[in-house]
Amino acid sequence: MFEEMTYPESVNNAFLFIASIAAVIIVGVTAVMIYFVVKYHRSRNKKAVNIPKHYGLEIFWTVAPVFLAAAMFWYGYVGYADITDPPDDAMRVTVYGQMWKWTFEYENGLRKDTLYVPLNRAVALDLKSLDVNHSFYIPTFRFKMDVLPNKDNETWFKAEDVGEFDIACAEYCGLEHSYMYSKVVVMPEAAYKAWFEEETAKMNASDTTASDTTASDTTAVEKGASVE
């Protein structure tokens, strides 16, 4: 049933599903509680009746939540299964997190501090930290993934709307953690292509004049750390 749904929609759905059940039960239990307190207040009910147990009820309210919990688990699992497995044709971007900025490196070595992506195209992210733990978070796209120094996490998304969206750091990383924002800019396919070609050309031009920012091998990662 999630097939035609975008990832953010599936998260919204899972949230709404759980939150609705929660709201019904919270309001229901509270209402029953208040009703009992009013109805069986000592001013109306001088003498209590002992009812020590009722196996039928106990079994009911132990088993019924199991089914509800299973359904909640399932809704959450379906979306998660999607996001952990990027499609093979996804374009790849390497994300470098460092105190306190993001750097995005495209497959040809082009490096930017804003993430430009084409509309409706799967974008797989290889997440690398240059220092402490960070977490790459795009609230609008409903996902985050930790960016760790010793282990490259992977995640992906497909933007379905043109526009600019916030990228935040969600794992506490020190002094300017709250300023570690960037943007993801979603452009129509053609506009993205034009932008990418222009930027690549600019990069190549500067490479011939200043050869200090070359290659996308691991040494470039170290250099990336010092690129402001």
Binding site: Y7, A22, I26, F73
Partner: peptide, 26 residues
């Protein structure tokens, strides 16, 4: 009881994997 109900259920919201990826650390 009232506050624990809210606290407990919002815990379940976060136990759901896909929702967790959004609201974790918020």
């Amino acid at each position: 009881i009232f506050h624990f109900l809210i606290g407990g259920f919002t815990g379940l919201v976060q136990g759901a994997l896909s929702v967790n990826l959004h609201i974790h650390d918020t």
